[in-house]
Design a protein around this nucleic acid. Structure first.
Length: 214
DNA sequence: ATCCCGAGGG
DNA sequence: CCCTCTGGAT
């Protein structure tokens, strides 16, 4: 994809959705961190069901610690990887209280030091909670970056760096959400909806389909 | 490279 | 049945 195509790609997504947001439900930075930590290899629909139950009972580090392992697991058992997520979340709550005054830290370094929080989760928190122009490369963005030719790469980090370099500055903060929503609802893993795609002309894969049909 | 791991869709 | 879902730790 060349620069003009990239510009049209994001201008089109922006026109359709001027203020994109995460579909995870939260009402505080700590709830956001918790939801994102739980979202690994899970759908946001599934995470929202679990956090609705969990936050009704506990939505602060101290309250979640008080649940204990069994109590916490009972609320998130419907999500995949729930045992490791429960363990990591409890460890993270302990660290938030002991080292960060019960608050979610704002630096990448401190975020990534939390158990269960890697580069992708830190990028989401930095973007959604603190408005930073980060690129959290999840399964959707990895696929869209490669399939469209927007930012090809063999690893999530390679795609992230490619996006940070190639996405025009004016689109950078919201690009994360446009790419996720595009991947979730249009540029799907199994059967991408290319015939209904608004940016097929700006996409390597979309143009390939056209030339094959012609 | 491998493990973790439930729900939903095809 | 198989694949996918806002990954991270070992």
């Amino acid at each position: 994809m060349n620069a003009a195509q990239i510009e049209r790609f994001f201008a089109t997504l922006k026109a359709a959705n001027p203020a994109p947001q995460t579909e995870l439900e939260f009402s505080s930075v700590f709830e956001l961190l918790t939801a994102v930590l739980l979202s690994a290899q899970a759908t946001d629909v599934g995470v929202n069901k679990a956090t609705k139950r969990l936050f009704a009972v506990a939505n602060t580090p101290a309250q979640i610690l008080a649940l204990g392992t069994e109590g916490l697991e009972s609320h998130i058992k419907t999500i995949g990887l729930y045992r490791s997520k429960a363990r990591h979340l409890l460890q993270t709550c302990r660290i938030l209280i002991d080292r960060h005054g019960g608050e979610v830290p704002r630096s990448r370094e401190a975020l990534e030091a939390l158990p269960g929080v890697g580069r992708k989760t830190a990028n989401v928190v930095l973007n959604v909670a603190f408005g930073e122009p980060t690129m959290a490369v999840d399964t959707h963005i990895f696929r869209v970056g490669n399939r469209t030719g927007l930012a090809p790469g063999k690893t999530p980090l390679a795609v992230e760096l490619g996006l940070l370099k190639r996405v025009p500055a004016a689109y950078l903060v919201d690009a994360h959400h446009w790419l996720i929503l595009h991947g979730r609802y249009v540029c799907q893993a199994r059967k991408p909806l290319c015939s209904a795609c608004a940016v097929a002309d700006e996409c390597d894969h979309g143009r390939q389909l056209k030339s094959a049909a012609a």
